[in-house]
Design a protein around this nucleic acid. Structure first.
Lengths: 208, 208
DNA sequence: TCGCCTTTTGTAACTTTGTCACTGAACAAT
DNA sequence: ATTGTTCAGTGACAAAGTTACAAAAGGCGA
């Protein structure tokens, strides 16, 4: 079983005592794709560190529209959980696994101890938070300044594998971009007509 | 002349040595309304702590559209400057004073020293960053989920003084909400017709 | 292999929001 | 009072999002 200290560089700089404390307050678990680990009236019972796989943090509006805020990849931590634990705030985001995931869930108490005592731990959380803030600012800008067509194109580029293939539905793209399926369909159709992509059910092949 | 340690609580918990270091690396300055202190091809030459007044951090899109990302109030620090200094990144936001401001600009070197050595300093920056991240996430949500009319109403509520008066132009509201003046004008006209507000040139009076 | 069900995609009509190109009104300074 | 500048109003249009369906694709059991 892989542990935090195997995957996270910061752990290598921690003292033996802190590592032991972290270990004793950590529950390792493997979850299947589509598992909701937080939100949906579930309280935050620990801070998830992702060892393998990736999580998706999203919100659902009052009208039921869903929007991805960001993904948490392998080697990253759910920084919103961390912030809520530190500020004793409520955590009303929903976090869902996008595939089979190995998680290390650190208990709030141990987290609070480490964030105060351990410099490497603190530095790591700091860095994650800064990165997320930059991401968020970029997202705000992107939503306001960039046309949906451009954003779809970027999305396709970023999510395509080496062969230019994506296994996503129009709905998924819409949710990730904070748009709606119909809009995505319209633009994909246009891109297909222009010969930039080819569509199949549940997947998209991009060219050039 | 007011100093950082007079306005910022965290300074009261710092050691004498760190306070002295901070002092020696800080330049105090007063700037007039509308002064641009960062961005516009200006490099970041220090981290501004706001003693009085408030700053506005914004971005300008390629098409020239301007959008406020957030305001930095008295007792706060420009966290984007801090992040850029820590990550040695470029700082391509624009920061402008919204009124007459007293600033304490801490040099990057001293900032980097304090962020490593001083726990109270670190804790303060941490807290500011967390707050800003929450704000940003809320902004993303608000832009995606809430109608412009609702957002205008919230804006009016939040920015009105005790008598329900706001001294803002339609253009300012548009920039702060990431919308356009014409849209704001349309909705304000509607609100005025419904008797919820009364408009004058450069100011709005809200009722109830 | 055929029908059935679910998921995914397509589409038309409509509303909301944003853009463009002006016009006019309010205020300040000379 | 004239002039220039900033602020607000407006109509026509474009882009994006919503509503309400219909149609196709794929999986699955009989």
């Amino acid at each position: 079983m892989i542990k935090i200290s195997d995957k996270f560089e910061f752990a290598k700089k921690m003292t033996k005592a802190h590592l032991a404390a972290m270990d004793s307050g950590t529950i390792y678990k493997t979850i299947q794709k589509g598992t909701i680990i937080s939100g949906d009236s579930r309280r935050c019972n620990g801070i998830p560190f992702v060892l393998n796989g990736s999580l998706r943090l999203f919100r659902i509006s009052e009208s039921g529209r869903e929007m991805t805020l960001y993904n948490i990849k392998s080697g990253e931590v759910c920084i919103m959980a961390a912030i809520c634990v530190m500020g004793h705030l409520d955590y009303d985001f929903t976090v869902e696994s996008q595939n089979k995931c190995d998680l290390a869930v650190v208990s709030p108490d141990v987290f609070r101890k480490l964030i105060i005592e351990s410099d490497p731990f603190k530095a790591y959380i700091f860095q994650m938070m800064a990165g997320r803030l930059l991401d968020s600012i970029n997202k705000i800008e992107s939503v306001n300044f960039i046309s949906i067509e451009q954003r779809i194109k970027s999305y396709l580029q970023q999510h395509a594998d080496d062969d230019g293939l994506l296994n996503v539905t129009h709905e998924q793209i819409a949710v990730d971009l904070g748009s709606s399926r119909e809009v995505i369909s319209r633009h994909l159709k246009k891109l297909a007509a222009e010969g930039e992509i080819q569509q199949k059910r549940g997947s998209i092949q991009i060219f050039k």
